[in-house]
Simulated scan of single mutants.
Amino acid sequence: MSNPNNEIEQQLFTLLRRTFAIHVSTASGEYELERSAYGILCLIDDNGPQRLGQIAQAFNLDPSTITRQVQAVVKLGLADKVGDPSDRRATLLSLTAEGRDAVVRARAHRRKMLDLIMSDWSLEERETFARALRRFNNTVSEWIENDEIPPPD
């Protein structure tokens, strides 16, 4: 019997490619959100205003990379840098009203696409998939937080 991890690895890569292929835009198309912009906006929408270092850590990216991506969402008027009330030297990235609207619309569009893609899945199948995916993501997060991911051979 083959190792199921081989199939899981292949399917995760396929999921990654397919997810990247889905064009992220608001339903009415005012914004064409790149994957990085969409990710940053969703992170802030889900977790509230974030320091740039927190955003870099959440995406496991270099702060300079995040700085460029943050500048793009600020330039679009979707986010603002505001002073951190707990540390006057630091800034937080927060959504503007326009940014919150863009996230709501983009998420609604993506969820509608999921409804179409998974239209022949039962509710039980969707719930099972959601639970398994949540468990996988939580496990990966724990490994990252505990610095347990071994280097490549």
Score class of each variant (00 low, 15 high):
Pro85Asp: 11
Leu16Gly: 11
Asp120Ser: 14
Leu123Lys: 14
Ala27His: 09
Ser2Leu: 09
Leu43Asp: 02
Asn6Ala: 14
Phe136Glu: 04
Gln69Asn: 12
Ser36Gly: 03
Cys42Phe: 03
Ser25Arg: 14
Leu52Met: 13
Gly77Ser: 06
Pro49Ser: 14
Leu133Arg: 08
Leu43His: 07
Gly99Asn: 06
Leu33Asp: 04
Ser119Arg: 15
Lys81Val: 03
Leu92Val: 04
Gln11Asn: 14
Thr96Glu: 07
Ala90Lys: 15
Leu123Ala: 15
Ala90Pro: 01
Pro85Asn: 09
Ala102Met: 07
Pro150Gln: 08
Ala56Thr: 00
Leu114Lys: 02
Leu61Ala: 09
Thr19Val: 14
Leu114Tyr: 05
Glu9Pro: 00
Ala58Leu: 08
Gly83His: 09
Gln50Val: 01
Ile55Arg: 00
Ile22Gln: 14
Ala21Glu: 15
Arg107Thr: 06
Lys75Met: 05
Ser141Asn: 14
Phe59Gln: 01
Lys112Asp: 14
Arg51Val: 00
Asn146Leu: 12
Glu145Tyr: 04
Gln11Ile: 08
Val74Asp: 02
Leu33Ala: 05
Val104Leu: 10
Phe20Lys: 12
Asn138Asp: 15
Leu16Ser: 15
Ser119Gly: 08
Ser122His: 06
Ala90Met: 11
Ser25Pro: 02
Glu124Val: 06
Pro63Asp: 04
Thr139Tyr: 12
Val103Asp: 01
Pro4Asp: 09
Gly53Tyr: 00
Asp101Ala: 14
Glu7Thr: 12
Leu78Ser: 06
Leu41Tyr: 05
Ile117Met: 10
Trp143Arg: 12
Ser64Ala: 11
Tyr31Cys: 04
Lys81Tyr: 05
Leu114Ile: 03
Asp46His: 08
Glu7Leu: 13
Ser86Leu: 11
Thr26Gly: 11
Asp101Gly: 07
Val82Ala: 09
Glu127Met: 10
